[in-house]
Design a protein around this nucleic acid. Sequence first.
DNA 1: TCTGGGGTCCTAGGACCC
DNA 2: TCTGGGGTCCTAGGACCC
Length: 424
Amino acid sequence: MQIWFHIDVNSAFLSWTALDLLNAGSHEDIREIPAIIGGDIHKRHGVVLAKSTSAKAFGIRTGEPVTDAYKKCPYLKNYPPNHHRYKAYSQKLMKLLGTYSPEIIQYSIDECFMRYILSEPAGDEQEIRRMSVSAAKEIKDRIRQELKFTVNIGISYNKLLAKMASDFEKPDKVHTLFPDEIRKKMWPLPAGELFMVGPSTADRLRLLGIKTIGDLACTDPEILTSHLKSHGKMIWEYANGIEGAEIDGRAKNENKGIGNMTTLSSDVSDKKEIFKILRELAEKVARRLRQSEVLAGLVCVEIKYYNFKSATHQTQLLTPSNGSSDLYQAACRLFEECWSGEPVRLLGIRTSKLCTAQEQQLNLFDMEKSEKMLKLDQALDAIRGRYGENAVVRGSRMKAEKLGWEQEIPDEDFNHMSRGKRHE
DNA sequence: TCTGGGGTCCTAGGACCC
DNA sequence: TCTGGGGTCCTAGGACCC
């Protein structure tokens, strides 16, 4: 029998920003006032990413527009996110946890699973449970004292139940959710609180008369499968505390894809303007691919229109690449092929089918071309490293113009792609 | 001053092959 | 000579997570 902890930082982005502000000399702890971490409304990035406890008391929810949050609490304070800093705090946390267990699965920047290792021989099941609770309390307190932020820790025999447990009363709490506690602690909760039951599934369950996790657990799984396919079976298992397939999908170290997207500060219909944005996105994504030392075999462009309707269009590259201009050219072509002509609110480029250079197979023509391009990209990466992000953007734009990147549709490389043809 | 950005997985439907 | 059916790959869209 294994025991899993799920460790979840309370209001992570807000807590971590609070610490940065205090360290910078502020006398106010934003964890103790109505405050949020939110995007810039003027750039239309304005959603709530994290909230303090008192902001929550005003009914402010994560994910809602910052403008709505202000309506609920006019004197709310809003601070910008700083992902670099959050990464540093996350690493500190993982380092501390690493001293307790070799088996840690990081699930996101502020959450992880940890297998509890008995520090001394124990007797029966009840005693092991008691020991795990006191170990969790010790870890939680040590994090608060040394790292100055709080966490919730959930404990159970599998990761699913541990995760559900860490979501009980917050902050700074340890909860258990062992199988014999499921009926009492989990079944009364609304079905939408179950892991993997989002708004859409919750609506469909409501139509079936299923309101709580208990209702779901007691529904004939055949009925759920007939309505929700494999998802129905999975959430029925979850409602009964059965983990089934591993839930650590995202925790695996290797990424399946790398992408960036951006909401534009106003809707854009000018193709030249759109290509400029695609170029910046392509450079960002390509640079991240190079940093990860992988090549992308597939490029996907995502468009969200002024009315929030969205579309994606993808193509497989003849030769996997992490070159900025390869990605840019593919993205422009994809955009042209699927754009309806309506004003664009968001643009994104996402790559997948990643492989390493060793796995890449080049023909002679590609080899010459990609060598040149690689040298250019490396030069740009070096400029970035030396002069910082701002110099980078200007530098790459100048180079881009010399290379003729302003031309609308580059033709090379695009014969027969995404047509399902074979190229043996 | 409406509604982010980073991901993963599943499904339906079409193409293609045998 | 009316045109089955299984397997696999690809694409677009949608649902979910934090």
